[in-house]
Simulated scan of single mutants.
Amino acid sequence: MKNLLTTIPQRGDLRHWADVEKILQACDSEDDFWTFSCRHYPRESGPGQACFMIHSGFIRGYFTVLEFTDTDVLRHGADQQNAEVISGKKVVLAVWRSIPPIAHTGFQGWRYTELQP
């Protein structure tokens, strides 16, 4: 099985790394998780693998992949007041771990990576 790499878009509440880092640090259990949408599930990855995250030109850390799902989830903004329903295929991630930043250009979607935790 392979690890994944994806980019956190720099828009809305996710523009600044300091704000994003607070949100990611709160994703510390299966009840407090992060998701990203995808057109196709990664066939060569799965639960238990790492998903490294890029923000503002650097790989900042990684999550553990919990599952792939098409179940609707609620996504809250930084204010935690207004939630929107996210439908479609998603990769569910939890337990954020920071790493020393590694320069890397962001991209849309996900890719496999040789990076290891």
Score class of each variant (00 low, 15 high):
T69D: 06
W17V: 11
L4N: 00
E21C: 14
G61H: 08
S29V: 07
D31G: 12
S98K: 15
G106M: 04
K90T: 04
D28A: 07
Q108M: 15
E21W: 07
V91M: 03
W96S: 06
K2H: 09
H104S: 07
Q81W: 11
S56Y: 08
E84N: 06
Q80C: 12
G61T: 01
L115Y: 12
A78S: 12
E67T: 15
H55C: 00
R39P: 13
F33Q: 02
D79H: 13
S37V: 12
Q108A: 15
V91E: 04
W96V: 01
F33H: 05
M1D: 07
R43G: 15
T64F: 15
D72F: 10
T35R: 00
P101T: 00
D72A: 07
K90A: 10
D79G: 10
Q80L: 13
G57W: 08
A26K: 12
Y41K: 14
L5S: 00
R15I: 15
S45E: 07
I59P: 00
L115T: 08
I102G: 01
G109Q: 05
A18H: 08
A26F: 12
Y112I: 04
R11C: 03
V73N: 11
T6I: 11
N82Y: 13
W34M: 03
F36W: 11
E67F: 09
V91S: 07
V20G: 01
K90D: 04
V20D: 04
L115V: 10
R43E: 14
F52G: 00
D19Y: 07
Q81I: 11
A18N: 12
L74D: 09
F63E: 01
K22Y: 09
G12Y: 02
G48C: 04
I86C: 04
S29L: 06
A50E: 08
